[in-house]
Design a protein around this nucleic acid. Structure first.
Lengths: 342, 342
DNA sequence: CTGTTAGCGCGTTCAA
DNA sequence: TTGAACGCGCTAACAG
């Protein structure tokens, strides 16, 4: 492991000149730079990350506070993490994983004080979140994936639930559907003020009302059995229903079964649109589901980019960056059979 | 950010005494230790990770070389990564993500020389893998998740495909099935010598032959359509077939559709056992699939524990640590309808 | 354009 | 049992 001193000697320059040649913080003549480069190559020199960090007081490392337990399939989490790591690398940063839940704000404070990270990415944010306060008082730049209730002064990127539900409803309405249901996450998540549950519900309702349509939505446990029951309840509430927007992957599979058991063919008689889904789940169904895929990779990339900007002293985004789920047409949505006019 | 010097002054001792009090590398009298602890608490002292690393030449950081692109649902990857991060933390290590594919051995070498990591976890290993050589010549401890063709002198943890396929076949045979198929990953993965494809095939065949049964296995692209065709091919090859072991999540969903379209009820007429599956996929089917869940979390934990041992100068496991997938009974396997004796 | 030098915060050897 | 001092490898003044 060659050091800068080794390189300096070999190139017949001083140690600092090597440093400056590397950082570009000061002009270095072409000829000496060439000699230095040569020496570095010959020695296989790589600057020591820890020494660099200690001296410059920047670790060039970003921390990702990782969800304690993942609900659901969470291929989305994989996409997110992979994308965040890639983006960090592209910007010359390492990404470290800090596996802490919402109740471990204190431990986060400890790690922050260790000076290992220049900035923090906080995912699966709750509407009320102690970790945000911990990071705030620690004075370390951080970016939220998701949003707290009050995002004033915070930098966040999140799924655009309004736009996603709006696009979902628009897709179905364009196909002629008028009686549309919404199959949401569980009552437990609603009670816990899980943001997607709340925002999804609100977004769906507004999208329907905006069109003069009556919104029907149900909360539903994350299981196929609950999905069947929820679907049955929606149909009971509005027998003329011809389409459903679901935001609950496992339950969606139960819902389709319930529909088929009632002799309703998908998509001829009934359309199913699964939103905020993980990659690949659309293909698991027959017919393959039309989905709106959660933008895991984009969130990872934008979250890191925003954080890198913050760490560099840049401005925190005044408004949250919101990204909509992308519609991926499958075989579970089709024109409404008989355009009713109720 | 209090430093050791601050603590030393406040406790009226020298800097080195604080250091020793912290590391325990040298005895410190109870009274001074108490004063030091007190001072540390009052100042909220946390040793600076970078300085510690520079001085001790150990970063207390482990690197996880992360798969470039994830095939399939890969909730398993999430489980693995979360578990690895948790285990690393329990042992006082950070976990950093290095997103590098099999063709980026050179970049890995660079990062290793930066001295950021004390050891490396390499996942999604190929049977032939340049990254292994890169790590080997770099002289850094590393652990494989998966196995290369030649594991001599390497430390690895992997799924026990032999045992998993054996257990899968045993489960079905115990239920009275005699004509059993195996729906594998794609021909492309086979050609690329993707280890699970090869080992799964071999394990299945051996488990069948061992019982005097004839193995029928097919390669199958990761899609429901291909799953249907593969299932049809298996049935064509052996019309008396009453059960199938699948190791291809997406294709499994197509296979079940093909069975049901032929009027074969699951599990009354035909049993389906999906092995090496991600968490949650079992529940996505109707009936819920009987699965053998990939031991993502165990692999993460054991991989990190082995690596920590290596980094500490411990011995590398002579033999690979193999973990079988755990059988989770669902509703897709049942006794064979008519115990045939062909 | 280049060299000299004082730290960054902590581990550890040598003396006491 | 404790202290003083050096060095880990590099950055960033300061000086020329």
């Amino acid at each position: 492991m060659a050091t800068m001193q080794d390189v300096a000697r070999r190139a017949n320059v001083s140690l600092s000149t090597v440093s400056y040649a590397l950082s570009g913080a000061r002009p270095v003549s072409a000829s000496t730079k060439a000699r230095i480069d040569e020496a570095m190559r010959e020695l296989g020199f790589r600057p020591n990350a820890l020494a660099q960090g200690l001296a410059s007081r920047r670790s060039r490392t970003l921390a990702l506070i990782f969800p304690a337990m993942d609900v659901g399939i969470s291929g989305t989490v994989t996409e997110f993490v992979a994308s965040a790591a890639r983006t960090a690398k592209e910007h010359g940063y390492h990404l470290v994983l800090w596996p802490f839940g919402a109740d471990q704000a204190e431990e986060i404070r400890d790690l922050v004080h260790q000076g290992m990270a220049d900035g923090v990415l906080l995912m699966e944010v709750r509407l009320q979140d102690d970790r945000v306060d911990a990071l705030h008082t620690a004075g370390l730049p951080f970016t939220l994936i998701g949003r707290t209730a009050d995002v004033d002064g915070l930098t966040c990127v999140d799924i655009d639930f309004d736009r996603t539900t709006e696009d979902a409803v628009a897709h179905l309405v364009d196909l002629g559907h008028r009686h549309i249901g919404f199959l949401n996450h569980s009552a437990a998540s609603h009670a816990a003020r899980y943001a997607p549950t709340l925002r999804g519900q609100q977004g769906f309702r507004e999208a329907m009302v905006r069109r003069g349509l009556e919104p029907h939505d149900v909360l539903c446990h994350e299981s196929p059995g609950a999905g069947r029951e929820a679907m049955a309840e929606l149909l009971a509430r509005e027998p003329r229903m011809t389409a459903v927007v679901t935001m609950n992957e496992i339950a969606t599979f139960g819902a389709t079964v319930e529909l088929q058991d009632r002799g309703l063919r998908i998509p001829e008689d009934f359309s199913v649109l699964s939103i905020v889904t993980s990659p690949g789940v659309g293909a698991m169904s027959n017919p393959p589901l039309t989905t709106m895929h959660a933008p895991g990779a984009e969130l990872g990339r934008l979250g890191v980019e925003a954080l890198v900007r913050l760490v560099g002293g840049g401005p925190g985004g005044p408004a949250p960056v919101l990204i909509s789920c992308r519609l991926e047409i499958g075989g579970s949505t089709a024109p409404a059979r008989s355009p009713d006019r109720s």
